[in-house]
Simulated assay, not measured.
Amino acid sequence: MAAPVVAAPGVDAVHDRATARAFVDTHIAPHANDFERAARVPEELIERMAAAGLWAPFLPPEVGGAGMDMVTLGEVHEEVGRGCSSVRSLLTVHSMVSWTLNRWGSPAQRERWAPLLARGAALGSFCLSEPGAGSDAAGIGATAVPTGSGWVLDGVKKWITGGQRADVYLVFARTGSSIGAFLVPRSTPGVRVTPITDIMGTRGSMIAEVAFEGVRLEADALLGPSGFTAGMVLTGTLDIGRYSVAAGSVGIVQACLDACAAYTTRRSVGGTKIRDFPLIQAKLSDMVTDVRAGRLLVAEAGRLKDAGDPTTLMATWVAKYFASTAAARHASEAVQVHGANGMGADYPVARLYRDAKVMEIIEGSNEVQRITIAGDAYRETR
């Protein structure tokens, strides 16, 4: 069971699906279109999420977390994704940094950063993608060159979720023949942040290009032993990201279902509620089926994480593939159900459509996922 979260006065703690749903329905979902138009999540919400213990509740209580289990975390991220994928995206990258620090960080690194990340006093962002390389670690061009007392980091990272707002970056860079992960405070000289605007989806997630120009880091900026990163740290970090995206994608399907059920109940054609049309009912029945199936796949991946079972990696690949494709498919159907109204700003489905497409690309594209899942099938057959 997750340990109870102690929230700030006047703010209810989020510790399960029900409390997450209440928080989302009050503070996130009604304003999601505003976040998209503003291309950012307001500081007031960031602070309110911190007060509710939302940023890294899986961290241990001794550093300010709640010790939340991964199944519950998936449920919370689903609810946030139902309300706004931009907000969920910020949770995703912050979770990736926080989890990686807790798993691989030195005692000194955890002492410095874990309490800040746990309470949302510092936000983390994940820096892997580059202008010429996505989630393929072999294509990383950023470099970290050792010096007598530390490292010099150079390179450019692109499509960095939360990059405009983050206080600390988890940066992956080449260290000779291997890959290293580095904790880089935003305030370090040589860090330059350029907002990326006018993107297709998750427009409120404050995406940026982050350049590192002769950034001098102390020796203790390295997270985990050099050469260990590509095989272990990066794998675990991306797994947490995929898990959150899978859960958030289920939330998108649920949001599509909710929007369509409400709209078709109100809307009439020729004196008949369109909810009574068989083709409309077929669309909604498919949404119901896929949201339940996706939820079960995410829960299974979370259960395996809680059990320390390494098969959680493939379970998460499957959950993310299924949920992201379902989100894209049903968001398209949701726009269709709404007709011309679905293409405007008065209903949420246009935003859901834009956000859902992003889910098929981030944390491993669907093409990469299909190759990985098929490879596992062949290994099992052997």
Rank of each mutant, 00 (worst) to 15 (best):
W55P: 10
A327K: 11
C84G: 03
L284M: 14
V318R: 11
L59Y: 04
T175V: 13
F126S: 07
M206V: 07
A350E: 12
R379E: 03
S98A: 15
A22G: 05
V41N: 03
S365T: 06
Y378P: 02
I280S: 01
P61H: 13
W113M: 01
T26E: 04
D355V: 08
G251K: 11
A137N: 01
A219L: 11
D198F: 14
D355E: 04
G132H: 05
G162R: 13
T372K: 06
A133Q: 03
A221F: 15
G302Y: 13
T72I: 09
A221C: 13
G180M: 00
V87L: 05
A319V: 13
G134S: 14
A8E: 08
G65P: 03
T202P: 02
F212G: 00
V368G: 05
R216D: 09
G251I: 04
I46K: 08
A282V: 12
D290Y: 02
R82F: 01
I140D: 02
E111L: 12
L183Y: 00
S226T: 14
V291W: 11
D198E: 13
T235V: 15
A142K: 05
Q109P: 06
A208T: 06
R112C: 04
M70A: 14
T289A: 09
G271H: 06
S125Q: 09
V337G: 01
F212I: 10
R186L: 10
L45V: 03
A315W: 04
V318C: 07
K305E: 09
P42W: 01
E44N: 02
V24L: 01
G53W: 01
W104K: 07
E43D: 11
D276N: 07
Y321F: 09
V6N: 07
G364C: 02
F212A: 00
T272M: 13
D258P: 07
D69T: 13
S149D: 10
S98C: 06
K320C: 03
E333C: 15
T381L: 10
G124Q: 11
A315F: 04
R112A: 08
G64M: 14
C256D: 03
A29T: 10
G134I: 12
T325G: 00
V152D: 08
A8K: 07
A2I: 05
D220E: 09
G74M: 11
S177P: 14
G241M: 05
F322H: 08
R275L: 11
R242F: 03
V24Q: 00
L123I: 09
P4K: 10
V233M: 13
G150M: 08
A334G: 00
A246S: 09
L297N: 04
R88Y: 03
G342S: 14
R216H: 10
I140K: 05
